[in-house]
């Protein structure tokens, strides 16, 4: 985030503009129906409107508006405003799922934005880290070399061949040459330095990674299967999984903490709003559903699969 953006995020004006919009919306929620009916037939393009159009245009990184372009955009705005007012006048916003869900989503965003303004203290982060160490646990890592036995070249004998070579592997060093071991060229590297579990799993498949990280370092292993065939593996060293100290992962912890604040604010705001409503709904949903009139014919009655 650039310093410029960071500084205006701290600006008190920002969050109180946000909260101001809350008030505005709230007013419409409570009083929006009043004065509904015939839409006002007067559309005035104020300098505020021009400013808003200009800002939206510039925000896309475009060059400065010409008068002709602004004129065109004002026409678009008028076109939109007329349709918007007529639509509202006809009550088209009522019972429109998209309008309802979009407004709900917008309100949630506003709450989240307010929550994001607070910088966490060191205590906040330490407390969070103590409660959620698993999110930041680092996987085990291994340094190893492997010998590959390819089913493309050996067909169904790949496993037996690998076992036979394992029989001769006792005491052999990690750099036991491929020619001597009579194994096959592998299409990816033979040697891996300090490779984390996820990386081994992604390349060889999770089953191979599970088996590999159970091996004891210092000797050639019995054959292990991957998605590519069979392998003997020599682990040079292995580092177990660890939970790093906070300093190492501080920015990741902070990001998670901020996300958590956002959802808490969302939930708290919703709880506060809900407390002010009286909700009347049937207690026995089963009975209420049974009491509904039958569905019209031709309407899907509910997906039915009968297991054979």
């Amino acid at each position: 985030m650039s310093p410029a953006i960071r500084s205006w995020l701290r600006e008190p004006l920002l969050h109180f503009l946000v909260v101001g919009l809350l008030l505005f919306l709230g007013y419409h929620v409570r009083h929006g129906d009043e004065g509904r009916g015939e839409p006002s037939r007067r559309i005035e393009i104020t300098s505020d409107d021009l400013r808003q159009i200009q800002i939206a245009w510039l925000a896309q990184g475009r060059p400065a508006l010409t008068a002709a372009e602004l004129s065109g955009l004002v026409d678009d705005r008028v076109h939109e405003e007329i349709l918007y007012r007529e639509a509202l006048g006809l009550g088209l916003d009522k019972d429109d799922t998209i309008v309802r869900r979009r407004l709900a989503q917008k309100l949630e965003f506003l709450f989240e934005d307010v929550a994001a303004l607070r910088e966490p203290t060191t205590e906040d982060l330490e407390a969070w880290y103590d409660e959620h160490p698993e999110h930041f646990r680092q996987p085990p890592r291994a340094t190893f070399r492997h010998l590959y036995f390819s089913p493309d070249r050996r067909g169904p004998h790949a496993r037996d061949d690998a076992s036979a070579v394992f029989g001769k592997a006792s005491g052999k060093p990690i750099d036991w040459p491929r020619d001597e071991a009579r194994s096959d060229a592998f299409m990816f590297p033979d040697y891996y330095g300090d490779d984390p579990f996820d990386s081994v799993a992604k390349l060889f498949g999770p089953g191979f990674a599970d088996s590999l990280f159970r091996l004891t370092p210092g000797a050639w292993s019995a054959p292990i299967e991957s998605g590519y065939g069979w392998h003997l593996v020599f682990i040079d060293s292995m580092t177990p999984a660890r939970v790093p100290p906070l300093e190492e992962v501080e920015s990741a912890v902070k990001s998670e903490w901020i996300e958590d604040q956002r959802s808490r604010m969302r939930d708290a705001a919703y709880a506060a709003m809900k407390a002010r409503y009286e909700i009347v709904a049937p207690k026995d949903m089963g009975a209420a559903m049974a009491a509904l009139p039958p569905l019209p014919p031709g309407m899907p009655q509910g997906a039915g699969i009968v297991p054979q």
């Binding site: 920002l14 109180f16 503009l17 946000v18 101001g20 919009l21 008030l23 505005f24 505020d48 409107d49 400013r51 808003q52 800002i55 917008k106 965003f109 506003l110 934005d113």
Partner: peptide, 9 residues
């Protein structure tokens, strides 16, 4: 006055 064109979020 609180509802200005420059709105956040």
């Amino acid at each position: 006055e609180l509802v200005s064109p420059e709105i956040a979020g």
